[in-house]
Design a protein around this nucleic acid. Sequence first.
DNA 1: GTCTATAATTAGATAGAC
DNA 2: GTCTATCTAATTATAGAC
Lengths: 187, 187
Amino acid sequence: MAWPSERRSESRDRILLSAERLFTERGFDGVSIDQVMQDAGMTRGAFYAHFKSKRELYAEAISSAAKRMEARHPASTDELIRRYLSIQHLESKAGSCPLAFLVSDIGQRDTQIRETYTRIFNALAGKLGGEPGSEPDDAALRTLVLMVGGVAVARAINDADLAERVLEACREGALDQCASSAEQRLQ
Amino acid sequence: MAWPSERRSESRDRILLSAERLFTERGFDGVSIDQVMQDAGMTRGAFYAHFKSKRELYAEAISSAAKRMEARHPASTDELIRRYLSIQHLESKAGSCPLAFLVSDIGQRDTQIRETYTRIFNALAGKLGGEPGSEPDDAALRTLVLMVGGVAVARAINDADLAERVLEACREGALDQCASSAEQRLQ
DNA sequence: GTCTATAATTAGATAGAC
DNA sequence: GTCTATCTAATTATAGAC
């Protein structure tokens, strides 16, 4: 799950940071190693001293981006939902969620990458409901699908008003779901 | 919206049919013109007698795939939701919904393609609720996001049991939403 | 309209100097 | 570890024969 810390270096971290942003924004095929390395301030040749292949970089970048987002999550679930399903998230140049931005990109990749995605998905679903440690409950899955799907759809459509309406409708639905699921837990 | 019918030919339709299936399954960058033409039983050179570019083919393929699906939609909204959010839809080799399978692919494309997506999205949302002809209501948007997001997420994750649970949770949510929104319309 | 042949470009990955 | 140079392969698009 975690990568050996002895392999970390400043250059490696810079490559990873560039990769997170570029891949999340443009997908696997939309970014070349050249572009990542230029963004990180190096040339292509240096890449393979840090990563075995583009696919390995992609998997690590997704995982790392998710961890970076998680570290900035607000304590309140409601606040998380509101921030996630916001216009700001759509346009954020520094840190959008790969779960949403890459959801249909992942379905086209290999097992390793899909495992990484699954792990991230489960972690976020667990935060949204269900017993910690065990499987997320149905309400949490639905809430997360509204979040991921809402952001993905809002980004795809070419109509700012409709995008805002989609985000708002999903926000309401996700908040409702969380409220009624919290009520149930109190009973 | 519709393309000139005088441009239609049997070869053109065969190319389009291959493109629909291949693009939906693998995305824009995951399919080469060579592969589409081979699948259609021709060679690369013939492609440009029918389409101006790969991007034009992609836009037409998405639109055409959506129309083909629409033609097979069941009359009942409930039945549509059940079929959409099913394992069969995920694995269907002939006719998956580009709205779900390409949702994050589209966000990386140009205006024309995103307009096509928006039009298809609106058409399906209109079927799920709201006054015909006018804008879809919030419940319809939420329902469609559950459908599109549920299928996209289920396809991305690498855990068959979890995928089935996601589909089921979204199915229940979408059906509930539709039922209560139909009740509201009766009042 | 379809074919083969061929630009022209780009990308992932490697080799070897420093 | 980073650089430049290069290999190899794939891809979009075009040209021209039939």
